[in-house]
Design a protein around this nucleic acid. Structure first.
Ligand SMILES: [Mn+2]
Ligand SMILES: [Mn+2]
Ligand SMILES: [Zn+2]
Ligand SMILES: [Zn+2]
Lengths: 147, 147
DNA sequence: CTACTAAATGATACCTAGTATCAATATGGT
DNA sequence: ACCATATTGATACTAGGTATCATTTAGTAG
């Protein structure tokens, strides 16, 4: 297997958690294994179904911890539970989500950040954050939709 | 009162509903009155609390109807229930939401739509939609945050 | 290794937001 | 007025998630 910029190991994540003052417990390792095994996005509930024997609360707490430590991206889609993906350390970015299969791509566009600065300068208020999600049909899903 | 482009009356909305083949019932009128009375954003649950005597299901159904008829904008924030605002007939636009008081401003930026076309041309898939939300502290809320 | 302390866990109950059902009611059209 | 259908609301149900708290575990000092 060729290592890529997208590759993140359970151990790396566990180290980050530990350096944040949290214990690298067996439960957390099991959740992380599941997260890393899926390359793509997932919901908390999917983890609950996948990782047997751990309490729901522990799974949700772990997801919250990973989010707080900046290890996950959270995507709040139009409906349904939020989806999470590993944060790939590419810095600030946005997401393209396939409405067919749920696969998540990342993109960055400096034009957006520039636009936001202009917007702030126009007196709308102090910008605290933003979210941009683009919904696509990926090349694999496009042929499948009967339309 | 000076009519503005933002002014929408219960009757106008009811007419739109009717021309969409739906009945302008007393329940719907009551929900609309509440929606129009609030100038700002609201959640479905807030309407349930505000409009006494109507069943929860009716309120939720009415919100769904208004959304389908293009009379409401839906904002899915990071957490909590989605917020809705009257669609002001300004055409496609995006939202600035104050994280302090929840007030919603609208904005349009052609640079965004241009960027999306470029993104699509780069082979990421067929764009089906997008959502952009900017979180701000509005001029009224900025002084209130102790930081 | 042992003992201690704080962090973490999991069972449970609870909660918010929303949907499915379905009998009763209101509406618009004849 | 009558009919067919749209709408309503009570109820039960679901998904997704949080609060509690007694028990367990992990790190740490002796
Ligand atoms: Mn991401
Ligand atoms: Mn709007
Ligand atoms: Zn796809
Ligand atoms: Zn504000």
């Amino acid at each position: 297997m060729i290592p890529s910029i997208n590759m993140v190991t359970t151990k790396e994540i566990l180290d980050t958690i530990e350096s944040g003052g949290h214990r690298p417990t067996a439960s957390r390792r099991r959740v992380l294994d599941a997260v890393v095994a899926r390359g793509d996005g997932f919901t908390a509930e999917e983890l609950v179904a996948e990782v047997k024997g751990l309490g729901r609360a522990t799974i949700y707490r772990t997801v919250r911890l990973l989010l707080k430590e900046g290890l996950l991206c959270k995507l709040s889609l139009q409906d349904g539970a939020p989806r999470y993906t590993l944060f790939h350390r590419l810095g600030h970015h946005h997401h393209l989500v396939c409405v067919g299969c749920g696969v998540v791509q990342e993109f960055r566009q400096s034009v957006i950040e520039q636009m936001l600065m202009n917007l702030e300068a126009s007196g709308t208020g102090t910008i605290m954050g933003h979210r941009i999600e683009v919904y696509v049909l990926c090349p694999a899903c496009l042929p499948k939709v009967g339309s």
